Simulated scan of single mutants.
Amino acid sequence: MNPNKYPPAVNDELAYPGALSVGSKGVGVKRVQEWLSYHGFATAIDSDFGSATAAALSAFQQKKKISLNSTVDDVTWKALIEPIVNALEDGTGAQLDDRITSIAKNHLSMEPREFGGDNRGPWVRIYTGGHEGTEWKWCAGFVTFIMRQACIELGTPMPVAGSLSCDTLAAQAKDKQRLVTSESVVANGAAWQGLGGAYIFLVRNGAGDWRHTGFGFRGPTGAFGTIEGNTNDNGTDNGFEVCARTRAAAGKDFVRLI
């Protein structure tokens, strides 16, 4: 994605917070602590730059072969946030489903996950437009972010507007005549193939109610591979990471993207 088209929440995460060192406090320190944890140098995420944060920072700088100055300078900051920049590299494929597949795989390879508590951390914030906290389940935000990135890169309109709500995604798809039920694809191979190479799946909680979403990718009728956010290896609808899974079509509805 062209950096000039980054969403505001992404720019907020990438903005250099200024030189930080022992004694610094605040949001910038919190973000440094989150990224140190991401890179394998976990320390308390408490917005207070103390001796533990300094030790974790020095270990990170040593690993990255950055000058050991005990300060978050511009070079160190760029190394910390590099995974987001990498995730936003242009995908491949001229068709929307191919581009979404490429971008989703790229995000997955960066291993996005929560840091600092339930539904918290830089990845959650970029996928939800800057929000975080227990109430901010981010599976729909992940889907919307990837879809929007693909459409920006291709210069094409969004197939549905996108949302942080599974129910709203389903309503948008129904309004655009893009919502395909589980029953129709399980019973009709042509309907399954008609979903294309990439589509949105919605886990049905009841009539008119959906509790989780992600991207599905072409598979044999009745099962499909996924890339989804706010889940984990158990397939929960409020997990802590972006994961690839295999799911059954039963009990799911789908959104055609092409």
Rank of each mutant, 00 (worst) to 15 (best):
E228N: 09
A15I: 11
T71Q: 15
W35F: 14
A198L: 02
C151V: 05
D253H: 00
I84F: 11
F201C: 00
S58C: 09
A44L: 13
G189T: 12
A19M: 05
F115G: 05
A55P: 01
E135M: 08
T76Y: 03
S165W: 09
M147Y: 03
A52G: 05
V186K: 04
P159C: 11
G162H: 07
E114P: 13
V72I: 13
D97S: 10
F224H: 02
G251L: 01
E241Q: 14
I126E: 03
G28L: 09
T213A: 06
T76H: 03
L57I: 07
A19D: 06
K105P: 00
R120C: 15
S102K: 03
V180G: 04
K65G: 07
M158T: 10
K174C: 05
T231M: 06
E183G: 09
F217K: 01
K30H: 11
V29E: 11
E228I: 05
D73F: 08
V203C: 12
G189Y: 09
A207L: 12
K65M: 11
A54M: 13
G214R: 02
T76G: 05
K64S: 11
G214W: 00
V186I: 14
G130P: 03
T213F: 01
G216C: 01
A42I: 03
D167G: 01
K252G: 02
G197E: 10
D73G: 15
D233A: 15
G214Y: 02
V124Q: 04
T76C: 12
V180E: 04
L202R: 04
G133Q: 07
F240Q: 11
A140T: 00
V32D: 10
G194D: 09
A244D: 05
S58F: 06
D98Q: 15
N238V: 10
A173P: 03
D209P: 01
E111A: 14
T226N: 11
I103W: 02
I258D: 15
V203K: 15
S51I: 12
A190D: 15
L195F: 06
N86Q: 15
Q62N: 14
R31F: 13
V186N: 07
T144A: 11
V27N: 11
T231V: 10
L195T: 02
N205M: 10
